[in-house]
Design a protein around this nucleic acid. Sequence first.
DNA 1: TTTTCGACTTATCAAGTAAATTAGTCGATA
DNA 2: TATCGACTAATTTACTTGATAAGTCGAAAA
Lengths: 202, 202
Amino acid sequence: MSEISKEKEKSILNAARKRFAHYGFSKVTMDEIAGDVEMGKASLYYYFPTKEDLFKAVVVQEQSEFVNNIESLLRKQISAAEKLNEYVEQRLKYFRDLVNLGALSVHSVFDIKSMFKKLFEDFEAQELILLGKIIEEGKSNGEFSNDLSKDFVKIFLHILQGLRFRVVKLLNEHKADEDTYKNLECEMKIATNYLIKGISCK
Amino acid sequence: MSEISKEKEKSILNAARKRFAHYGFSKVTMDEIAGDVEMGKASLYYYFPTKEDLFKAVVVQEQSEFVNNIESLLRKQISAAEKLNEYVEQRLKYFRDLVNLGALSVHSVFDIKSMFKKLFEDFEAQELILLGKIIEEGKSNGEFSNDLSKDFVKIFLHILQGLRFRVVKLLNEHKADEDTYKNLECEMKIATNYLIKGISCK
DNA sequence: TTTTCGACTTATCAAGTAAATTAGTCGATA
DNA sequence: TATCGACTAATTTACTTGATAAGTCGAAAA
């Protein structure tokens, strides 16, 4: 694939991201995206085999951005506790983007035919690894208790997932105002800090 | 309303509870329930104005059973930490019953027209009060830190809600095996205990 | 007066269908 | 290798209908 083609692929990806972020997956047609990059619809299929694959490519892009951010976070010279806090913040930002894409609407989240199943499973595995590193670091430098349950990482992640889900549910019920997300952020941070206290060596 | 009528009402409630627990709300007809108590369908409407109201009555019954359990838990002579742990356990049992009733299927949970909206809102308020009492007790007897964020109770409850919710999602995705609930219980207990450590005076 | 019920109406839901939109294919072309 | 016009096939939507079950009402039994 030539340099020019790679550029084209990027511009398609970009147009798609904008459209999806604005209207969500189902409300965007391939014709529209093709129009944005001044191509025929058929040409898009030269680059992406299906509409779903195009969408996934957009999500994967966001995802790897997040992972990169975390990996550079890991290299920082700050305490494991601070890293956990920053992790929570970055994660929130990432999911906010996914919500915009419509990838996390109630319908897509609760759609068992969800095209993201595997994608999200892989992502969870990756998160467990990243968080595991932070926890291990905290253990080895004496910040965190050494007899920490080996399930703690998973539970911590599930708490974050659960708190966010609750909000997705509220959004669906139209019981969410502007600062529901602000509030979620607040809850996650407070919860994180009590948990950090709970796992710290006193 | 006579004594006999109160008995009839109870037997209707009972028959309804059994049917709903077995088949869920939508799969049970008023004719069936009427058959169980050897009455005509029209007679049920003498006691309960709608099918929904009958169902709600069943749920309210379970709910007040739970609240009673917790209120007697509050009177026990055990530490606040132990009370929190028992609270989590009782709460799980209560929700397991609601799931059986079909009141907590994904569809009903995510149905914004859910007939339970108000019921659940009231229940959450009640839970905040009950949990608040446990936390206050822990503060006043020196178990828990006195500078505990006043949002802690809410966050603790939201964590429990979130963890359960995650499981509802898994159930929907058919990614849940027999011991998903066992696992949920385990996660809630571990999370509870780290949080207790986090809020304890060391 | 309280309670029951048969016979009725009305609302809801599931299945099917037709029309329209859009995903995806293919052969031609530059 | 990259593009596209013209095609097909799959999905979605809106509508129809038939059936089932919710809910009403007036009469009558207790």
